[in-house]
């Protein structure tokens, strides 16, 4: 088991190393764009707060903007996972992976996890600069940082295991871009990536807060702004439960699907 984990962690590590070799491509190709979105929203919230005051009770202007920074950093970090799996299937590239002594989908999760860590830090850094210049900083107690990191890592992992389950449908559908699109919009809206779920009508808010998507964006981002050990524990446990739930689905679905694989280019 230990050597298995070691194997997969090496896969994450080599992807971190590779990401670092083209870090400027990532910054110019992706991060700057996300920082721009944060800039636009920061302006938008400034206007809204000036005319209406607090949109959500207890959420100040700077909290709203920083919420977006964390939400963006968490959700966009995993990249277009579903599409990447779809592309592997479409191009026949999957043949390279299936002939190795590892599980293909676990391999992909660890690849994206490695790349995701770099993306996450870059968006946090550049988005943070924009947010700081526009609305100032927020207070985070140093003690909470390790707990926040745990929740952030689990948020990324949860996002990846849900994406993995969805990506398996790419074995049936010829083009996975649509799947990727639907999934990313789900995390935008029900996950609360852009705005806290409190802006929705109470019923929608309750449903969205229960659904797994919100544990990869809304709950962790809010925890950064309003930290309590009790909330941390709640989020931590539910994250683990959802991750476990999707891993079980993934396990059975993968076993079933891999028998139906038809590798392209035969």
């Amino acid at each position: 088991m230990n050597s298995q984990l070691n194997k997969y962690l090496s896969i994450s590590f080599i992807n971190i190393k590779e990401s670092l070799t083209y870090i400027w491509d990532i910054i110019f190709g992706k991060v700057i764009f996300i920082a721009l979105i944060i800039f636009v929203f920061a302006n938008l919230w400034t206007v809204v707060f000036a005319s209406k005051g607090e949109v959500i009770p207890g959420f100040t202007l700077s909290m709203m903007v920083w919420y977006l920074v964390f939400g963006e950093a968490l959700v966009t970090s995993i990249g277009r996972f579903v599409k990447e799996v779809g592309d592997d299937i479409k191009s026949g590239e999957i043949a390279n992976y299936l002939t190795k002594p590892y599980n293909y989908i676990v391999y992909k999760i660890f690849v994206s996890f490695g790349k995701g860590l770099i993306n996450f830090m870059l968006v946090l850094f550049f988005g943070g600069i924009v947010a700081y210049l526009m609305v100032g900083g927020i207070k985070i107690s140093l003690v909470s940082v390790p707990f926040l990191l745990i929740v952030a890592l689990l948020a990324m992992l949860l996002n990846l295991v849900i994406a993995s389950v969805i990506s398996l449908f790419a074995f049936w559908i010829e083009d996975s871009s649509s799947l990727n699109y639907i999934y990313s919009k789900f995390t935008f809206i029900f996950g609360g990536m852009i705005v806290p779920l409190e802006v929705y009508p109470p019923l929608v808010e309750k449903i969205a807060a229960f659904l797994p998507f919100s544990y990869s964006a809304y709950h962790p981002s809010k925890l950064v702004l309003i930290f309590s050990f009790k909330t941390f524990l709640e989020i931590f446990i539910v994250q683990l439960l959802w991750i476990g739930f999707f891993i079980i689905i993934l396990f059975f679905l993968y076993k079933y699907i891999i028998k139906k694989v038809s590798v392209n280019g035969g």
Partner: peptide, 16 residues
């Protein structure tokens, strides 16, 4: 983007 030696080292781990 990486030198071949990195890929070799990774494969050594993949194949135990």
């Amino acid at each position: 983007h990486l030198p071949p030696i990195d890929s070799f080292n990774l494969f050594a781990k993949i194949y135990d």
